[in-house]
Structure formats: structure tokens, C-alpha cells
Amino acid sequence: MSAHLMCMDIGTSGVAPPDFKTQAEIADIIKVPERTLEDWRLNHVGSPYMKLGRHVRYDLAEVFAWAREQRHA
């Protein structure tokens, strides 16, 4: 883990550090093709994501929060 993420220790802030996942991991977790995640990013309609350099990462808590917002009665 990098030094700047280590300072986000649960003991110092009382908040768990983000659980960053790759596109492949998120696709597996929410059971959609990776291509769907790519399309959502291009169309600005999917789960929040971040670019760390050229790498796309998703914070698992944000993905779950976004998924809950998609619920229909």
C-alpha cells in the first residue's frame, strides 16, 4: 500500500480506507460484462469511478451506494 493511503488508517480517522477494485472485479461483483462498465463510463451513467493515472478504479462502497440508488419500487 502506498504511503499516502496508509495514513487513511481506520484507527486514525475512524473511517475504513477505500476498497479500490478493478473493472474486472466490479463486473464480477455486480454481474455485468466489463464492456457495460466501459459504456457506462463513456455515457456518464454508471457507478462513480476514478482514474489513477491510466488505471480505472472503483471504490466498492460507492458502487454499492450507486447500486442502491438504482432500485425501483
Rank of each mutant, 00 (worst) to 15 (best):
V63G: 06
H44C: 05
D19K: 12
V32A: 03
T36A: 06
G53M: 07
E62L: 09
M8T: 07
W40R: 01
L37H: 01
H4F: 13
D39N: 00
G14L: 14
R68D: 13
T12L: 15
V15P: 06
F20E: 03
A61E: 14
A67W: 03
F64Y: 11
I30W: 03
W40E: 01
F20V: 02
R41I: 07
Y58T: 02
S2G: 08
E34W: 07
A16P: 00
F20D: 05
R57M: 15
F20S: 03
Q23T: 08
P48K: 10
Y49Q: 01
H44V: 00
K31F: 09
A24Q: 09
A67H: 04
H72R: 14
D39E: 00
R71P: 15
T36S: 08
H55W: 08
I30N: 02
R41Y: 05
T22I: 03
I29N: 01
E38T: 00
T22P: 08
Y58S: 04
T12A: 15
L37P: 02
W40A: 00
G53A: 10
G11V: 15
L42I: 04
R54W: 09
Q23S: 05
A27R: 02
H44N: 11
V45K: 14
N43A: 06
G53E: 04
E69Q: 10
R54E: 07
E62W: 08
A73G: 12
S2Y: 09
M1P: 05
A61N: 11
G14N: 10
D9P: 10
D19Y: 10
Q70T: 02
L60Q: 12
K31M: 05
W40P: 01
M1D: 09
I26L: 01
D59F: 11
T36W: 05
A67Q: 04
E69T: 12
G53C: 09
R57T: 07
G14A: 13
P17N: 13
A61G: 11
S13Y: 10
K51V: 07
S2F: 09
E62Y: 08
G46M: 06
A24Y: 06
K21V: 00
I26W: 02
G11I: 15
K51M: 12
T12Y: 14
H55S: 13
R35C: 05
R68V: 12
A67Y: 04
S47N: 04
T36K: 03
G14Y: 10
A73T: 13
I10Y: 15
A61I: 10
A24N: 08
Y58W: 03
F64L: 12
R54Q: 08
A27F: 00
I10L: 15
M8E: 11
M8I: 09
S13K: 07
A61W: 09
M8W: 11
